[in-house]
Every structure is written in structure tokens, then in C-alpha cells.
């Protein structure tokens, strides 16, 4: 039997800090998790539990108190362009045009190649004709697409997404989820996606990691073996969703209907 080495490996990640009054605040409590290459994994948990913190550690923006994250068996020390972070509140540069934003990380390629790459991703995100537009002229969903395109253009194999659809309206969010799955299939990236929206996680992920309240520890890892695009009326879909609600300690009978 061939043992596949994980793409991302969280090994005993622990994070705590000392508050001003001397008390120790535990944020993450020995998180262990393996993510396969090309997998789409969602992390859900109560807000403020440390989901984003975990993502920041994986990307290298933050150091754990103890433990290690390994990517391709190499410990993460600092961020690099092989794994790109996508922010909750859009981080597209407002002073650069759409194509300048997308080409931002492309320094070491020829101008012609850069132009080709930028054009390719503009088409992928459906923003042809907006090449020279500034972000202020775009809607929230379009800006978030530009951010995703900028991340993809630098050729990463992992995307760390921190509630990237959280600021969008409901309809845009639904559309973006479908598009994100398309992009993920087309580009064959490994995606680690943080959300507080259980429905979103079941619509997107191969596996959903449920974190507990602070200090965050992994409470459950739920497989979502459903064909895409996901049928939201499928009993199996609803069962998985309710299972996650159960793991989060929520009474889904009242909440599920309101959740999306």
C-alpha cells in the first residue's frame, strides 16, 4: 500500500499568549490535521474560535507557540508565493487597475508572458473589458474575484481562504461558491477555506473540519462524499449538514432554516 504524503500537515499546533494581567490565554490546543494534495477542506467553528489564526499559522504569517506546519514535508517558516492567502476583507489594491492588481506578483516573467497570464485570469474570472478599471468601479463580488485571480496568477499550489465570501450579499455568495469550485477543479489547487457558515462548508468541501470554541481543538472531521455541484435538497447533503451542526453543539432544527 502506498502511503500518500500529505500536502499540508498540522503537527500539534498550540498557540497561547500571556495577557496583561498575567493570565495565559489558550487559542489553539494541539491541532493535528493532514490535508491531501488537491483537496478542498473547509474549517468551521464558532466565531472568534481561532479558525483564522490557524490559517495565518499555516500560511506563515504567525508562529505557533509549539508544533509545526509542514507543507510538502517542509516546515513553514514564512509566507511564500507557492501558497497564497485570501483575505476576509478584500485586499485588492485600490490604486492599481484590475490588470495591474492581477499582475502584481508577476515580477520575474517577461512582459509578454505577464500580459498573457493576466489576460488568462481576467477571462477566467469573467472580467474581460474591466482590465483598466479601478477597484472602486467594481462590485464586492468582482473585487473578490480580482483578489482570487491575483493569487492564482502567481502560480501557487495552495490557497488559504479566510472567509473570502463573508462580505458579499447572499446571491453573489451562491454564485461565487459555484465559480470557486469550477476554478478549483480547473486549476487543481489545494484549498483550505475558513468559514463560519456551515451550509457554505458542505457546499464546497471534500471534508469539513469542525473546531471547538476557544481554545480551538478539532472536534470532528466530516467527509462530504457528494457529487458536485451539490444538490441542496439531497437528503445526504442535509444529513451531513445536520451532523456538523450537531458537532458544533447547535440545535439545527431551529437554526438550519435561517442559516444560509
Amino acid at each position: 500500500m502506498i502511503v500518500e504524503t500529505p500536502k499540508i500537515e498540522f503537527r500539534d499546533i498550540d498557540l497561547h499568549f500571556t495577557a496583561e494581567d498575567g493570565s495565559v490565554i489558550q487559542v489553539l490546543d494541539s491541532v493535528n490535521l493532514n490535508i491531501r494534495e488537491g483537496e478542498f477542506v473547509c474549517i468551521v467553528g464558532p466565531s472568534g474560535c481561532g479558525k483564522s489564526t490557524l490559517l495565518n499559522i499555516a500560511c506563515g504569517f504567525l508562529k505557533p507557540s509549539s508544533g509545526q506546519v509542514l507543507i510538502d514535508e517542509v516546515p513553514v517558516v514564512r509566507p511564500n508565493r507557492r501558497r497564497v492567502f485570501i483575505f476576509q476583507d478584500n485586499s485588492v489594491f485600490p490604486w492599481l487597475t484590475v490588470s495591474q492588481n492581477i499582475g502584481f506578483g508577476l515580477a520575474d516573467v517577461s512582459p509578454i508572458e505577464k500580459e498573457k497570464t493576466v489576460q488568462r485570469y481576467i477571462e477566467m474570472i469573467g472580467l474581460s473589458g474591466f482590465e483598466h478599471a479601478y477597484p472602486r468601479e467594481l462590485s464586492g463580488g468582482m473585487k473578490q474575484r480580482v483578489e482570487i485571480a491575483r493569487a492564482l496568477a502567481s502560480g501557487p499550489d495552495i490557497l488559504f481562504m479566510d472567509e473570502p465570501l463573508g462580505a458579499l450579499d447572499w446571491l453573489t455568495r451562491l454564485k461565487m461558491r459555484a465559480d470557486l469550485v469550477d476554478i478549483w477543479r480547473q486549476e487543481k489547487k489545494t484549498i483550505l477555506f475558513v468559514t463560519h457558515d456551515v451550509e457554505e462548508s458542505v457546499q464546497l468541501a471534500d471534508r469539513v473540519v469542525v473546531l471547538s470554541d476557544r481554545p480551538a481543538a478539532i472536534r470532528a472531521v466530516v467527509d462530504v462524499n457528494l457529487p458536485r455541484p451539490r444538490n441542496l435538497d439531497d437528503p445526504e447533503y442535509l444529513r451531513i449538514r445536520d451532523e456538523i451542526f450537531d458537532w458544533m453543539g447547535l440545535d439545527h432544527h431551529g437554526i438550519a432554516a435561517k442559516s444560509v
Partner: peptide, 11 residues
């Protein structure tokens, strides 16, 4: 976040 984007993309 803008500075982090630059760090992340190694600019």
C-alpha cells in the same frame, strides 16, 4: 493586509 499581500507574493 496590503503589506501582507506583498510579503505573500514575495514582492
Amino acid at each position: 493586509k496590503f503589506l501582507r499581500v506583498a510579503t505573500n507574493l514575495e514582492v
